[in-house]
Every structure is written in structure tokens, then in C-alpha cells.
């Protein structure tokens, strides 16, 4: 009988997920094992090689979880194929029955639906949106095994350029997030200036990131980071469900948008309709 809950952590370990995995293992009568492939991710660029190295580790797994980082979202589907197991992407909620059946919940079809999914294969696999679960005490004390593997030949890493400023978005008390409505990289510099003055950091919607205004590290939402700051100021963000999913846990939400019909206002505590630049100018003046 397969009795393990295997958590795979990558370069960016999700301690909240580690806490959640411990709770799920307890409730589902499974043994928790944590494996880190972080050293491999640094050493080799071949996700397929990492997936293969994980196959023997999954021998006794009933559940396999991993944070939905870019690399693990590539590695887990490969591993799922090798194990012929079902895999649910980017879950936002997990539960388990005492017999070890994993209930996986995720937003579906990019809109207002939330689907709960069960796996019909023996091994149940899911990636989990990073930052979804709060870190509970003791998560750091869970022993982590390191994955060993031979370097791969088929993909070669030539160069890695780290992001200049890694914004600790997940820890920020105040986030000033911009959307496509900001219109340019220069606009984002202005937002950054404002954020800096009020002790916040800059976030962004996917549209703003895809448009190239701001790096991916700033992306809040379903395919970015999930945040829950004390104050979230959404500027020029229409409020696609994918974005809302990443910030709806914020204590207070302020929306600034020129379109009075923008859905973001339905998810905000305070709102101003108007040109974002003049509103930010006015705010800076009042706060100076």
C-alpha cells in the first residue's frame, strides 16, 4: 500500500505548502517526505532529467505535491506522465479524506468558476499556487532530502541573468499594483516612486507584465504570486479573475481606474474613478 505524501520543493521553497503538506499527511494517514531538487535546478537546465530522477522517489507515494513555480510546472507534468498519474495544476485549496483521497480545488476556465477535482489514478498529483497557504510553526523543522542525479546532456545552461531587484512582494505590507492601464515602463517608474514614498512595493497584473512594462517577478495573480498585504492599491487594473485570485486575501483594497465599469471596483473597499496619474500626483501631495 502506497503511504507517502511526497512534497517536492524547488529553488523557491514554499514553506506555507510545507505546513499544509504536514497537516494533510496527518489527516490522510500518510507519511510526509520532503525532497528538494533545488541543487539540481541550479546545476542542470534539463527538467526532463530531474523528472526522471524523481521516478524512483515516487515508488511509495499516494500524493505528490509541489509549488507551481515555472520549473516545477514543467517537471511535474513530465513526472506525471512517467508515473501515468493524474495531475491538477495550480491548486488554491487542498483537502484530504481519512482514506487518503485528495480533493484539489482550483479556479477553472479563467473566470468565475471554482472546480474541485479528484484523481482517479493510484498516485494523486497537484501543483499548488505559491504563497497560497500560511506558514505554521515547525515547517522548517521537517527534514528535507536532497535529490541526487547525473547532469543531463540534452539541455545546456549557457547563462543565467538574475533579476536585478527581487521584490519581496509576498512580505510587503503595502502593494501598489499596476495594470495595462499604466501604459508604459515609464508609468511603472512613477508607480514605483509612489510605492517607495508610502513604504510599499510595486506589483503588476499579467497584462502589464506581458506588455513588458515590468518584470515577471512583480506579477500578482493566478500565474504570478499570491499576496495578502494590509493594503493593496490596484491602479489601472481591470480586475480579471486570474488577478483577483492573487490579491483577494488583502486586508484593504483600493481601486483606481478610469473605467467606472471595471470589475476591480466590485472587489475593492475604496475606489476612485479617474486618470491614474493625476490621482497619484494628488495622493503624493496629500501624503507629503
Amino acid at each position: 500500500m502506497k503511504q507517502e505524501l511526497l512534497l517536492i520543493q524547488g529553488t523557491l521553497p514554499d514553506m506555507g505548502l510545507q505546513s499544509k503538506a504536514a497537516q494533510l499527511a496527518l489527516k490522510g494517514h500518510l507519511t510526509l517526505r520532503v525532497i528538494s531538487g533545488a541543487n539540481l535546478e541550479a546545476a542542470t537546465a534539463d527538467d526532463g532529467a530531474i523528472a526522471k530522477a524523481l521516478i524512483p522517489q515516487a515508488q511509495n507515494a499516494r500524493v505528490i505535491l509541489a509549488p507551481a513555480t515555472t520549473r516545477l510546472r514543467a517537471i511535474l507534468p513530465m513526472l506525471a506522465w512517467y508515473l501515468q498519474a493524474g495531475l491538477t495544476a495550480d491548486c488554491t485549496h487542498l483537502d484530504i479524506s481519512p482514506d487518503g483521497t485528495l480533493l484539489q480545488t482550483r479556479p477553472a476556465f479563467g473566470n468565475s468558476l471554482i472546480a474541485t477535482i479528484e484523481t482517479v489514478s493510484g498516485i494523486q498529483m497537484a501543483t499548488v499556487r505559491p504563497g497560497t497557504f500560511p506558514v505554521s510553526e515547525g515547517a522548517e523543522q521537517i527534514p528535507v532530502e536532497t535529490l541526487q542525479e547525473k547532469p543531463a546532456q540534452r539541455v545546456k545552461l549557457l547563462e543565467f541573468v538574475p533579476l536585478a531587484d527581487s521584490v519581496p512582494l509576498g512580505e510587503a505590507k503595502i502593494i501598489v499594483a499596476g495594470g495595462a492601464g499604466i501604459g508604459s515602463s515609464a508609468g511603472f517608474l512613477k508607480l514605483a516612486d509612489f510605492a517607495g514614498r508610502i513604504g510599499g512595493v510595486v506589483g503588476a497584473s499579467r497584462n502589464a507584465v506581458d506588455a513588458g512594462y515590468v518584470p515577471y517577478s512583480a506579477q500578482v495573480g493566478m500565474t504570478g504570486i499570491t499576496v495578502c498585504p494590509k493594503l493593496y492599491i490596484a491602479v489601472g487594473i481591470s480586475g480579471a479573475v486570474q488577478h483577483l485570485a492573487g490579491m483577494s486575501g488583502s486586508t484593504t483594497v483600493i481601486a483606481i481606474n478610469s473605467d467606472p465599469k471595471a470589475p476591480i471596483f466590485q472587489y475593492a473597499d475604496y475606489g476612485i474613478v479617474g486618470d491614474w496619474e493625476s490621482i497619484i500626483d494628488q495622493l503624493m501631495e496629500e501624503l507629503s
Binding site: 498519474a85 493524474g86 484523481t119 481601486a255
Partner: peptide, 19 residues
């Protein structure tokens, strides 16, 4: 290998916006 067992509608307007 996976089966959707339930679909819920996300309730819109979780907050009351004060303009």
C-alpha cells in the same frame, strides 16, 4: 486521470466599494 467532482461559482462583489 482526473475528474471534476464539483463546480462552484465564485461570488462577485465580495467587498462593498466606497467611492
Amino acid at each position: 486521470k482526473t475528474k471534476v467532482i464539483r463546480v462552484d461559482t465564485r461570488a462577485p462583489g465580495l467587498r462593498k466599494c466606497r467611492y
